[in-house]
Simulated assay, not measured.
Amino acid sequence: MKVSVTIYHNPACGTSRNTLAMIRQSGEEPIVIEYLKEPPTRERLVELLKAMGISARELLRQKGTPYEALGLGDPKWAEDELIGFMVEHPILINRPIVVTPKGARLCRPSEAVLEILPNPDIGDFTKEDGEVVARK
C-alpha cells in the first residue's frame, strides 16, 4: 500500500526538482502542488508551519522575491503579518515543503527529504549539479 506524500513544488527550482526526483526514486508518486499556481490558504500555511516546527520568518525566501522591497528584513513584522505576506506573494514561501506520514520538512538541502520518506533507501542519487547523494 502506498502512503500519501505531498510536495509543495516549484518546477523552476533545482532543489525542488531534486527533492521530487528523490521522492520518486524512493518508490512514491507524490501529490505535486505547484504552490505558485495553487498557493496554500492562510490556514494551510499555518498548519504547515506548525507541522514543520518553524516560524514564518524561517520559511521566508529572500532570493528572487519582493522580500527587500517589502522591507521584510525588519524585525517589526509579527508572525501573523509575515504569513499574510506569504499568502499574498507565494514566491516568498521557501521550497520545497514535503509532507509525509513521518512529518513535514522544508527540504533544503534536498536530501533532507530522506529523513521523512517512508522508504528513504534511494540507493545512489545524483543531483542535477552532479553531487552524489549515497544512501546505504
Rank of each mutant, 00 (worst) to 15 (best):
L92R: 13
I23Q: 04
C13Y: 03
L92H: 05
L92V: 04
I33K: 04
L45V: 13
K37S: 09
P30M: 03
E29V: 07
E47W: 01
V113E: 08
T126P: 00
V46E: 11
W77E: 02
T15H: 06
S55P: 02
P11D: 10
K127W: 00
N10Y: 10
K76Y: 01
N10K: 07
A134L: 14
T6N: 02
A78T: 14
F125T: 06
I31P: 01
I31Y: 06
D80Y: 01
G130C: 15
D80P: 00
I33L: 06
E79Y: 09
P96D: 04
R135I: 13
K102F: 12
L48T: 11
H9C: 03
L49M: 13
H89A: 03
E43H: 09
P66S: 01
P120G: 14
I97Y: 05
E81I: 04
A69V: 04
I97L: 13
L45P: 08
R108I: 09
E38D: 11
R44N: 02
K37Y: 03
R108S: 04
E115W: 10
L36M: 10
S55Q: 10
V133Q: 09
A112F: 11
E88M: 11
L70R: 04
E81C: 05
K2L: 11
G73E: 05
L59C: 06
A69Y: 05
K37Q: 13
V132M: 14
V113D: 07
E28D: 09
I83D: 07
E58F: 01
L60K: 01
K63E: 13
L45D: 04
L70D: 08
D74H: 02
V99T: 14
P39Y: 09
Y8G: 05
P66A: 05
S16F: 06
T6M: 04
P40I: 08
A104F: 11
V113T: 08
P30A: 03
I91N: 10
L48C: 14
V46W: 00
L20T: 01
G27S: 06
V133K: 07
G14E: 06
C13H: 03
N10P: 07
A112P: 04
P120Y: 08
A104W: 11
N94E: 15
E28M: 13
Y67M: 07
Y8N: 03
N18M: 08
R17N: 02
D80G: 15
K76L: 01
E111M: 12
P30D: 00
S55I: 04
L92A: 13
E68V: 15
P30C: 02
A56E: 07
K127Q: 10
L48W: 10
P109H: 14
A56W: 09
C13G: 13
V113H: 00
L48H: 09
R57L: 12
